[in-house]
């Protein structure tokens, strides 16, 4: 009776010692030391896991920042504030992080864009619409109105307006840029929030065709480029703005026949 008890205690005790030794060994030899900075940086990040920085979520971004693989101002959602906090934690200079905003460079909604004689009955998704002859609008460059950008926005900062075009709620928008990535026609572009001059058209057709497919299309007259003294360059039938050289005062906004080039500051 007593020996049984002793054997049991000895076995259990022995096993306990053995495993404790194993654990102690593993603790010393297999320990993974995480840089404590990673945790600190992770705490100041927005935590939306939107992927706007190009990394797989906020934690991955924190790891990369601490290891020096990502820029301190790489988080477009947190913007300047977060960059400052990260810079404090890491004790380095912060770069300049400008708030970015998506711009919808198309005004050809259901009212303006001319429709084909046919009707699109497939699934409502820009990706689907562009596979099948580009949907029911004649313009081969503009917004197709399927709302992929609205569905992709992780912050609910977009909606489709009555005219079938996406609108951005700039107060909520964090500038992560997902909408620009999913747009199959590249109608949405990311620009610093301070930029206000845009050509709101992507149509590269010759003037006659452009007029036929949409009432507000840029017809490629080139007047903005001629007056801009190098700030705007014509590429084919579409003006392209060079923001480094642009002088807003020189652009004849009221001379644009279809109003395709705009200054958002004046509009608001």
């Amino acid at each position: 009776m007593e020996t049984g008890l002793i054997i049991a205690i000895a076995t259990m005790g022995g096993l306990g010692l053995l495993f404790a030794g194993g654990l102690a060994f593993a603790d010393k030899k297999l320990r993974v030391t995480e840089n404590p900075l990673i945790g600190k940086v992770f705490e100041v990040l927005p935590g939306a896991n939107c992927g706007g920085c190009g990394k797989a979520g906020c934690y991955d971004f924190a790891v990369n920042v601490v290891e020096g693989k990502a820029k301190i101002n790489g988080c477009p959602v947190g913007g300047n504030e977060t960059a400052e906090k990260i810079a404090q934690i890491l004790g380095v200079e912060k770069g300049v992080s400008e708030k970015m905003l998506p711009r919808v460079l198309c005004r050809g909604g259901n009212k303006e864009a001319v429709k084909k004689m046919t009707e699109y009955l497939g699934p409502v998704s820009c990706e689907a619409i562009t596979i099948i002859s580009g949907g029911d609008k004649l313009c081969a460059y503009g917004c197709v109105g399927g709302g992929d950008c609205v569905n992709a926005c992780p912050f609910d900062a977009m909606y489709m307006n009555d005219n079938g075009l996406p609108e951005i709620l700039e107060d909520i928008c964090t500038g992560c840029g997902i909408c620009a990535k999913v747009c199959p026609r590249n109608v949405i572009e990311m620009h610093p929030a301070t930029r206000t001059v845009f050509v709101l058209c992507k149509n590269q057709d010759e003037p006659k065709t452009a007029k036929e497919v949409c009432s507000v299309a840029c017809i490629g007259c080139g007047i903005c480029a001629r007056k801009s003294e190098g700030g705007i360059e014509m590429r084919g039938y579409l003006p392209v703005i060079n923001y480094d050289k642009l002088d807003e005062g020189l652009i004849p906004f009221d001379k644009c026949k279809t109003g395709a080039i705009v200054n958002l500051k004046k509009l608001s």
Binding site: G122, P123, S125, E127, A128, I131
Partner: peptide, 9 residues
Amino acid sequence: QWIRIGKKS
């Protein structure tokens, strides 16, 4: 139609 979109993606 959805499968086609998937293939394209």
